[in-house]
Design a protein around this nucleic acid. Structure first.
Lengths: 167, 167
DNA sequence: AATGAAACATGCTCGGA
DNA sequence: TCCGAGCATGTTTCATT
């Protein structure tokens, strides 16, 4: 099993803090009927396990001027240069995601730009020089869903299970 | 101008809290050389303007069992049913993003699944019944970049500008 | 729109169970 | 692993500039 098993308390904590990173741990504690120290310890544990990887405030891209969001599939002239291309992509701040994918593309990236003109500049000035044989751009007109991983649906270890199996 | 102009202090605050939602506002205050109350007021203002939209803890998908991440382009048999399809997609927790896009697809979604088998089940049992004429799945083997919007690069109003223009 | 102070709440640590 | 208590720290409000 590649992933860590979580119990009900872990899950409840994750659900609460994933939805609101600023929630006081004492409030989480009250919601879970445990002490603040327990929440503190659990969050420490989840962080040490690498399950929790920091926290972010969510900023509305449009409100700060990023009016264009696009996905771009990339094919490389020299696919063996994959790693160095990813390093170059990392230097382009507008590139917020990069995936190594199955299917038609070598790489698949997500980009935010101020507008379509800015997007074209990025593609022409920064992406093309990386040695692309082809690229395909999908522009998002509208993001109608944007949310987090489902926490509710992940399997849990519950107390009865553990007792049944003498864990 | 569709977006809100930010000054240097707004930008610095956004940069700090975007990177770490749990950072004490007093620490932000010290980094910005202003009082804690000022940070409190600014964050209130940024929230009221809709620039800040809450905060999230970041959870590593793989560590909680989501080993498959995929993007799927969808074409609808009845494109006029767009809105109701989006509502149905919203009910599928594994769908974390949904975009209305240019190009070949009517909709473009991002999905997390436990594994490829689970992904196929979702496509077959939940997506196909929505009335798809076609779909194209891009599976991400590996996410090599996943980060936030560039805050550094957004334009600022600075004090001299404002004085020059008698704002 | 920023400040400092005050009142209140939370974060963190440690000893003990 | 959890609890409770203690102290350090942070949050929020308010009168003032």
């Amino acid at each position: 099993m590649a992933y860590q098993r979580l119990d009900k308390l872990d899950k409840q904590i994750l659900r609460l803090i994933a939805a609101d990173a600023r929630i006081p741990f004492l409030e989480v504690a009250r919601a879970c009927n445990v002490s603040g120290a327990a929440i503190h310890q659990r969050i420490q544990k989840l962080t040490n396990l690498g399950i929790l990887k920091g926290s972010h405030f969510v900023i509305d891209p449009e409100k700060i001027g990023y009016e264009t969001c696009a996905y771009i599939g990339l094919n490389l002239k020299n696919p063996e240069k994959f790693d160095s291309v990813v390093e170059e992509l990392r230097k382009i701040p507008e590139v917020v995601e990069c995936h190594y994918t199955t299917g038609d593309f070598d790489l698949f990236i997500k980009i935010y730009a101020f507008n379509n003109h800015h997007l074209l500049n990025i593609i022409h000035d920064k992406l093309q020089p990386l040695g692309l044989s082809r690229s395909e751009t999908i522009i998002s007109f509208n993001t109608s869903i944007d949310r987090q991983l489902p926490i509710v649906d992940i399997p849990v270890i519950d107390q009865d299970d553990m007792m049944d199996r003498n864990i």
